[in-house]
């Protein structure tokens, strides 16, 4: 298992709301702090990442901006990527601009499926190929915050589909390059982010299976995010039950009623046990090492919180299945 910091391209994926953007940001922060030149690219209509890293940050847009030393962020907008691609292919920016102004063209593109995914991955390929003046890679590590699974797999499958739907021409050739990149274990890693609950756990198992069987994108570990830490100290594993046994009339000045204390304690114990159980299931069903990230009590925003998660993410010795 090559350390995450030494990868070229990490595509973070998972169900909606599992923490993909948080994980992408956390990895970007520790990698940049470790001296890597990092690009983190958010895919989709909205930008969340800059504001997670630095609350209140302005959007970074397609051109991107450095959020910290060695940490560049951008959002890949498919139309902008398409304009750039056509500009490179045709060479005449004016022609491309007029094509984009053509209403029929916009209509055609708005209605056509698939090209957004392809052009987005094409842009990632282009970024991966970029070099600086010394001929070194422009970025050491590129992190892509991919759309939620379901769409996430479609996203990765599009180059193959285009390869078989288009018979000839540059498009076919370029789709081939993209496909080679995302299937190459030396360059690409898909990093699934899951939550340790029943349905996300099952979906993750399905995702990994489909990745292995159909899509062929390398995956070597699963991130299980927001795991509730053990809530009670050693020797007090049944604290919730003890609280429930306290006399109902007991009043602790400055504290909620004991019944409420018992209910809250039971909630945390329930979540912790549930998380532990489903983490185990994810490990067994995917047969992959698991990296767990704690559920942070005060949210996962800002550089400090993200660094905590980032270090947990890159710490070696992930739990083996």
């Amino acid at each position: 298992m090559l350390p995450l910091l030494d990868r070229r391209l990490v595509i973070v994926t998972g169900k909606g709301g599992t923490g993909k953007t948080t994980v992408a940001a956390a990895l970007a922060i520790v990698a940049a702090a470790a001296g890597r030149r990092v690009l983190v690219a958010e895919v989709g209509l909205d930008e969340h990442l800059p504001a997670i890293v630095a609350p209140g940050a302005r959007p970074v847009g397609y051109d991107g901006r450095d959020l910290a030393k060695g940490l560049r962020a951008m959002r890949i907008d498919p139309y902008e990527a398409l304009a750039e691609y056509l500009g490179l292919q045709i060479g005449l920016r004016g022609v491309v601009r007029r094509v984009f102004e053509n209403r029929a063209f916009r209509q055609l593109m708005d209605a056509s499926p698939g090209w957004r995914e392809l052009i987005t991955l094409g842009k990632v390929w282009h970024l991966e190929q970029m070099q600086d003046e010394q001929g070194r890679n422009r970025f050491d590590l590129i992190i892509v915050d991919a759309p939620a699974t379901g769409h996430g797999l479609t996203f990765l499958d599009v180059p193959r589909v285009v390869g078989s739907a288009v018979r000839a021409g540059p498009l076919r050739r370029h789709a081939g390059w993209v496909e080679q990149m995302i299937r190459d274990p030396d360059r690409t890693l898909l990093l699934p982010v899951a939550l340790a609950e029943e349905l996300p756990a099952r979906e993750t198992a399905e995702l990994v299976q489909r990745l292995r069987e159909d899509v062929g994108v390398p995956v070597d570990r699963v991130v299980v995010n927001a795991v509730a830490p053990a809530p009670f100290p050693p020797g007090a594993g049944d604290l919730d039950e003890r609280l429930a046994r306290l006399p109902a009339h007991l009043r602790i000045p400055g504290a909620p009623p004991v019944a409420v204390l018992a209910a809250c304690a039971a909630h945390w114990r329930g979540r912790h046990e549930l998380n532990a159980r489903w983490t185990q299931v994810i490990a067994e069903s995917t047969e992959l090492p698991i990296v767990t990230l704690p559920r942070l009590a005060h949210g996962a925003r800002g550089r400090d919180a993200l660094s905590v998660l980032g270090h947990a993410l890159v710490r070696e010795g992930a739990v083996a299945p």
């Binding site: 007029r98 094509v99 053509n102 055609l108 288009v166 018979r167 000839a168 021409g169 498009l171």
Partner: peptide
């Protein structure tokens, strides 16, 4: 112009 661009990228057979 649009058709030429599409053709150039995807080949006429597409």
């Amino acid at each position: 112009r649009v058709l030429r661009v599409i053709e150039r990228i995807s080949g006429v057979s597409f």
